[in-house]
Every structure is written in structure tokens, then in C-alpha cells.
Simulated scan of single mutants.
Amino acid sequence: MYKRILIATDGSPLSDKAVESGLALAALSGASVVALKVVPRYPRSYFEGSAPLHRDEIKQVEQRWSDAAMQELSVIKQMGTSEGVSVKCVVAKSELIAESIIAAATKNNCDLIVMASHGRKGIKRVLLGSETQHVLTHSQTPVLVLR
């Protein structure tokens, strides 16, 4: 059925449900999993909303964000191990979340993307757009959306 499943997470409660369902599907189909979390880069200019920080401080901030993401992904890896599923953890640094998800699925030869229907709520979702919708409309890889 499936050989490699990409599970995208943003750490939200709904995303956690998608992670559980994706791991269960992987266990049933004998697939391996690529667990992905996309973290933003620190804004570089005043016009992007940046606070004036030195380059070294920016690297430290971004490293903390990456480390926190990797900690979240290691929990998914442990969950997968307990279900007999091999999990590869990937942290992508980008403001382009949907594009990063699609690129990671392509790069890792995934034959399914599993993600939550949304992570943000209310006006933020409307203003920022739906990353899930973007993945659905632009991905060549099939997408399983959970709510």
C-alpha cells in the first residue's frame, strides 16, 4: 500500500491527532515515516518585523527553534518505535510552509502526506491562508487531511 508516509506537524492539538493517525496507518501498511516540522527563519530586516539583533544572536534564536522542533519530532519517533514504525525526523527552516512540506515529500520519495486540516484558528487562519489548502492544490503526492 504505502511505503513512506510524510507526517507534517505544527505541534497543535489537531496536528497531534494527525500524527497518531499517520503512525497507525504506517503501522498497518508497513510503511516508514518522515516526520516533518517547518520552523521559520528569524526576520532579517525591519520591514519583516525584525528586532535589531546581531547575526550571532539570530543564529542562536534559530538554533533554539530548531532544537525545540527536533525535541517535538523525537517524541513522534518514540511513538513510532513503540508501534514498530521507523521514523526519520526532519526540520525544515522556511517561511514557506506548504512548499517545504511538498519539497520534503518529494525529496524523501513519500507516497502520502498526512497533515491536519488546520493549525491556526480564527482571523489568523484567514489572514495567513491555509497551508493545508496549498498543499492539497499543489502537491503531486496524495494528501490525507485529518480533522
Score class of each variant (00 low, 15 high):
residue 87 V to G: 12
residue 61 V to I: 04
residue 61 V to Y: 10
residue 63 Q to C: 00
residue 80 G to Q: 04
residue 88 K to A: 05
residue 64 R to I: 06
residue 97 I to E: 12
residue 69 A to Y: 13
residue 56 D to H: 02
residue 86 S to A: 05
residue 60 Q to G: 11
residue 108 N to D: 05
residue 87 V to P: 04
residue 99 E to S: 08
residue 108 N to Q: 05
residue 67 D to K: 03
residue 66 S to M: 03
residue 107 K to R: 05
residue 63 Q to M: 01
residue 76 I to W: 14
residue 71 Q to L: 09
residue 92 A to G: 03
residue 70 M to G: 13
residue 85 V to S: 00
residue 69 A to I: 08
residue 86 S to P: 09
residue 91 V to S: 04
residue 71 Q to P: 05
residue 72 E to D: 15
residue 104 A to C: 10
residue 67 D to S: 06
residue 63 Q to L: 07
residue 78 Q to G: 08
residue 82 S to I: 06
residue 75 V to H: 08
residue 79 M to E: 11
residue 69 A to H: 09
residue 106 T to D: 15
residue 80 G to N: 14
residue 69 A to T: 02
residue 67 D to R: 11
residue 60 Q to T: 13
residue 65 W to Q: 08
residue 105 A to E: 01
residue 61 V to A: 04
residue 89 C to I: 09
residue 62 E to R: 03
residue 90 V to E: 07
residue 62 E to L: 02
residue 92 A to W: 09
residue 81 T to S: 14
residue 64 R to T: 01
residue 93 K to N: 01
residue 69 A to P: 11
residue 100 S to N: 13
residue 105 A to G: 03
residue 81 T to Y: 08
residue 65 W to C: 07
residue 76 I to K: 09
residue 94 S to H: 07
residue 87 V to A: 04
residue 108 N to W: 01
residue 68 A to H: 07
residue 86 S to Y: 13
residue 108 N to A: 04
residue 94 S to K: 03
residue 58 I to P: 04
residue 66 S to R: 13
residue 102 I to Q: 09
residue 102 I to D: 09
residue 83 E to F: 15
residue 86 S to M: 13
residue 93 K to H: 00
residue 57 E to M: 02
residue 75 V to F: 02
residue 80 G to V: 04
residue 105 A to Y: 00
residue 87 V to T: 03
residue 82 S to E: 15
residue 77 K to W: 00
residue 95 E to R: 11
residue 75 V to Q: 15
residue 56 D to Q: 13
residue 95 E to T: 06
residue 104 A to D: 12
residue 74 S to R: 14
residue 105 A to H: 01
residue 57 E to S: 05
residue 86 S to W: 12
residue 101 I to Y: 11
residue 63 Q to A: 09
residue 58 I to A: 01
residue 80 G to T: 08
residue 108 N to H: 04
residue 66 S to Q: 08
residue 74 S to E: 14
residue 73 L to H: 13
residue 67 D to A: 08
residue 91 V to W: 14
residue 94 S to D: 13
residue 60 Q to D: 14
residue 68 A to I: 00
